[in-house]
Design a binder for these strands. Structure first.
Length: 934
RNA sequence: GCGGAUGUGGCGUAAUUGGCAGCCGCGCCAGACUUAGGAUCUGGUGCCGUAAGGCGUGGGGGUUCGAGUCCCUUCAUCCGCACCA
């Protein structure tokens, strides 16, 4: 009566989709059970909807969630939407549709697509970052960050009020400015006393506090993109052009919000040790943080001007100090204008003009180009009083270290090239390690020409030099990080407004009662063009009174994403961002699944916010994600047709070299394998209605390429289409079967029939040839039990280790074996239904019901496998001697290794071959004699 | 340039972690059935060879009784960072 076919699958899947919602089976609340938190990286709801690549990670997490639930855990498995962002805003500019409206529609579409795949999300916990009830708390957390400073003495964030009382009591002598370059206006000092503090007026005090706040305003160099009319984050700029659109990006100074993430650099780095991320992911984060240990050294400067500041360099190689042949400072360095000599002034100015003229793109494109100019000034080596010429060059970056370096040509590649290019003398301090042709950055050389360091190995000399520098008071150990503070302002409409009010140009936190500060309604999403965002156009909103105004910027999308996993624990709380009880119960995310493209930005900001909230006492943990899995990307498999240039003739791929052709993407839907469906092609686009074809063997063969899945390549495969023809269960299992989760792979449906057949075979175990449900209550045989328990064990191991592709294989083997055993016994099939239910929830739920259960399969328990059925009583072991199988013996399976050795030795087989001498070695592997060495 | 990863049949992949390489699926070959379907079922399928046998996990070398797995070296591909002193 019922066959596992298209119609039946459609009926079953729709039935259970509705039933699960009706019964509310996916709703979770805290309980006495142990918790397990499985999280997906929530998507940005783009207008294009989901393609088959998106659900890969979601399917994996769904399997884990269902499996853990069967194993007795109380599983939190929520989903939400990262709904603020630039695409909706650009769509609004182009089509006049308000971002709120298009975003809402997109979300609706996403949810319907996701529901079809059968995910067990607790939709009652859905969050949207663009919802005021959500971003109220994004703003609130921002204010907590604004109201904090990093107490380096305690190595944690503290409330700003603690800083104020420190200033009132002792000034800032124990807590100098985090940014060492900062000076008090007027005096130019870096330290102030308690008395000074009391003498400062309100604005000065606020400006000082701003230097300490973890969310602060400052004039920063930002990536200004004229074409997009906005500022971009570092990770939105790739090779000097914008990530979206590829428009040029230039530096511009703007007063912006930043997060002082640099204060957390060390903890973000250390934290990596205790969390389970892949090596490459950790490495990318380490790289981004970019810690390097070295020393800061102060050099006296000799120049024509009598009073000049010392120059300070950062180096990781203080041991090479006697090899310094020149100094280089960044062109932007403030000392440049002071030290340039009369004779060199022209050169220097010419060079500065040149640097100014170079765009970011030029600079990146020509990193190898060596340029520079001599300033005419000299630095004095503190140990041997040697006068070292000071140069400027753009290869030294103003933003890293001190913006000045010591040039050691014999041990640094770039310095060496610089010296060669400008014909500067090269001092060899590493003897035979330097060949005169290229620098050698070794640590192992014995130093020469190095005064008191002569004879020391470089590695050891580092400490000796630093100790001496510290003794002399002209240097000290220093750790540097590449990471910069995170720019947190965006000149956009569709984001969280900053919950602050400016008074006398200084921002003050809004009262909590005023939150959320709602995004004002608007029809004008164009940037103001002056660098300010669209909100600046809403003058009435910006201006509050005569002296007060709002911020016209909004937060980046990272803001909402930096804490959404916390909100899921208590999504409807109107009093707090989440209750401490909920946070303590659900705690850290046990498994976080998502793409590696969020390696730096999102994960670092999420980790940062959690650390700050932890420091302020809101959280009991300071790492959000215990384990991270990066699912691979599913790429598209594009097809091409070849049009003979200037004609409407299309030539098959095998013959295209005989013509002058252009390759055009063709919709993968009208290509079967590589063969083009000619009729469908002529109907595809009006241009091709009269197309002519040059065929090979009567067929038109298309070209193929693996590319990103994209609408414009016509290679997008929609999961809905797969579900339409095979059902959601097949889609789920096939995506898992495709290969290891973490590996990127092209989408193809080559093997999907195999998975589909598997589900049908599974179904047929329960049905006779006529499709009638039939089941036997007979006692299972030993062989059947063995198949069952072997499968259960494998599945459990595979799912725990996230190798879902092998799980699917195991199920296939199981069904093949049961089919050939003609098994239709309840005692065997019922546990398998539960075993399979994480992977194929719809068909198993239907079978579960047919098996007579009222309660949903989702609420059952994963069956325990029985070790005894996995074992045989005895086994025939081949006995190899010196690598060749010489004999076979039978042993009890659980016989200890030593006993096996004894039996073999007693048997005389070995003596036969070893002339009575005991063998050198008897190798027993897993209770099995593998080899005997004579 | 630096860092990370990967490399196994015609294809996607597997290998109890050092123990009979190629499980499972696709494809292909042969057969059965048939209401002729791009259906279903059964058997076969790493390569060379009629066979016996030989070869085989990108290449070369090493450790080991034994290597896809460990070590050295080299090549190729992908990803990340890229003048970070």
């Amino acid at each position: 009566m019922s066959d596992y076919n298209k119609e039946e699958i459609g009926r079953i899947e729709e039935k259970w989709r509705k039933e699960w919602v009706k019964r509310g089976v996916y709703k979770v609340v805290p309980s006495k059970k142990p918790k397990y938190y499985v999280l997906d990286m929530f998507p940005y709801p783009s207008g294009a909807g989901l393609h088959v690549g998106h659900p890969l990670g979601y399917i994996a997490s769904d399997i884990v969630a269902r499996f853990k639930r069967l194993k007795g855990f109380n599983v939190l498995h929520p989903m939400g939407f990262d709904a603020f962002g630039l695409p909706a805003e650009q769509y609004a500019i182009e089509h006049g549709i308000h971002p709120a409206k298009s975003t809402g529609q997109n979300i609706k579409n996403f949810i319907s697509q996701m529901d079809k795949i059968g995910f067990c999300y607790d939709w009652s916990r859905e969050v949207r970052t663009c919802d005021p009830t959500y971003y109220k708390w994004t703003q609130w957390i921002f204010l907590q960050i604004f109201d904090s400073w990093y107490n380096r003495k305690k190595d944690k964030a503290d409330r700003i009020e603690t800083l104020i009382s420190i200033f009132e009591g002792e000034g800032n002598c124990n807590h100098p400015f985090p940014n060492i370059k900062h000076r008090l206006p007027g005096s130019g000092e870096t330290l102030f006393s308690a008395l000074d503090w009391k003498s400062f007026d309100e604005k000065s005090r606020q400006e000082i506090l701003m230097q300490y706040r973890l969310a602060y305003l400052a004039y920063t160099d930002v990536n200004w993109c004229e074409a997009l009319g906005t500022v971009l984050a570092n990770d939105e700029v790739i090779n000097g052009v914008s990530y979206r659109g590829g428009f040029p990006v230039v530096k511009k100074q703007m007063r912006q919000w930043s997060l002082r993430i640099t204060e957390y650099a060390e903890r973000l780095l250390k934290g990596l040790e205790e969390i389970d991320f892949s090596d490459s992911m950790k490495e990318i984060q380490r790289n981004w943080i970019g810690k390097s240990t070295g020393a800061k050294i102060r050099f006296k400067v000799k120049s024509e001007k009598s009073k000049v500041d010392d120059m300070v360099v950062f180096t990781t190689r203080p041991d090479t100090i006697f090899g310094v042949d020149f100094m280089v400072v960044a062109p932007e360095h403030e000392m440049v204008k002071d030290i340039a000599s009369e004779a060199q002034r022209g050169e220097v100015e010419k060079y500065l003009t040149y640097v100014e003229s170079r765009s970011e793109i030029d600079r990146m494109a020509e990193v190898k180009k060596i340029t520079g100019a001599f300033t005419g000034a000299y630095a004095i080596n503190p140990f041997n009083r040697r006068e070292i010429p000071i140069w400027i060059s753009e290869y030294v970056l103003a933003g890293y270290g001190t913006g000045a370096i010591m040039g050691v040509p014999c041990s640094d590649e770039r310095d060496h090239k610089f010296a060669k290019h400008f014909n500067l003398p090269i001092t060899n301090i590493i003897g035979p390690h330097y060949n005169g042709k290229e620098a050698n950055p070794t640590y192992d050389a014995v130093l020469e020409n190095s005064d008191f360091l002569n004879g020391l190995v470089m590695r050891e000399a580092i400490q000796v030099v630093v100790n001496k520098l510290e003794e002399m008071g002209i240097g000290r150990r220093q750790v540097n990080y590449k990471m910069r503070d995170a720019g947190w302002s965006r000149q956009r409409y569709w984001g969280e407004p900053f919950p602050v009010i400016y008074r006398d140009d200084m921002p003050y936190a809004m009262d909590e009662k005023g939150l959320p500060l709602e995004l004002p309604d608007s029809n004008d999403f164009r940037p103001s063009g002056t660098g300010e965002g669209p909100l600046a156009n809403l003058k009435d909103w910006i201006k509050i009174g005569e002296r007060e105004r709002r911020d016209s910027d909004t937060m980046p999308t990272h803001a909402g994403a930096a804490w959404y996993f916390l909100r899921f624990t208590d999504p409807h709380n109107t009093k707090e961002f989440a209750s401490r009880e909920a946070l303590d119960y659900w705690g850290q995310v046990d498994v976080y699944i998502g793409g590696s493209e969020h390696a730096v930005a999102h994960l670092l900001y999420a980790r940062l916010w959690v650390k700050i909230l932890h420091d302020l006492g809101y959280l009991g943990f300071d790492e959000p994600f215990k384990k991270l899995i990066n699912q691979g990307k599913i790429t598209g498999d594009s097809r091409f047709v070849y049009r003979v240039r200037g004609t409407n003739k299309f030539v098959s791929a095998g013959l295209k070299d005989q013509y002058d052709t252009d390759a055009l993407h063709v919709d993968v839907k009208i290509v079967n394998g590589l063969e083009l469906n000619l009729e469908a092609f002529t109907q595809w686009k009006p241009d091709f209605a009269n197309a002519e074809f040059i065929l090979e063997e009567g067929k038109y063969i298309c070209g193929a390429a693996i590319e990103k899945m994209s609408k414009s390549y016509f290679n997008v495969v929609n999961p809905d289409d797969i579900i339409e023809s095979y059902g959601a269960d097949t889609l789920r299992m096939y995506e898992m079967f495709l290969g290891p989760l973490e590996q990127s792979k092209p989408w193809n449906t080559n093997g999907i029939d195999g998975v589909y057949k598997f589900l049908r075979k599974f179904w047929n175990l329960f049905h006779d040839v006529k499709g009638n449900f039939r089941l036997s209550d007979d006692e299972p045989t030993r062989a059947e039990l063995k198949v069952l328990h072997k499968t259960l064990k494998k599945i459990e191991q595979d799912v725990e280790s996230f190798s879902f592709n092998t799980s699917v294989s195991e199920f296939m083997i199981c069904v093949n074996e049961l089919t050939s055993l003609k098994t239709n016994k309840r005692s065997i099939l019922e546990p398998l239904v539960i075993g399979l239910s994480s992977f194929a929830p719809h068909v198993t739920e239907e079978l579960w019901e047919k098996l007579g259960h009222k309660e949903t399969a989702f609420n059952s328990t994963f069956p325990q496998y029985q070790e005894e059925y996995l074992k045989e009583n005895s086994f025939e072991y081949p006995i190899s001697i010196n690598g060749k199988v010489r004999a076979k013996m039978e042993f009890a399976l659980d016989m200890p290794k030593e006993d096996i050795e004894k039996v073999v030795l007693a048997s005389g087989i070995v003596n036969k071959w070893s002339e009575g001498k005991p063998p050198k070695k008897v190798i027993v592997v897993q209770g099995r004699i593998v080899n005997i060495v004579l």
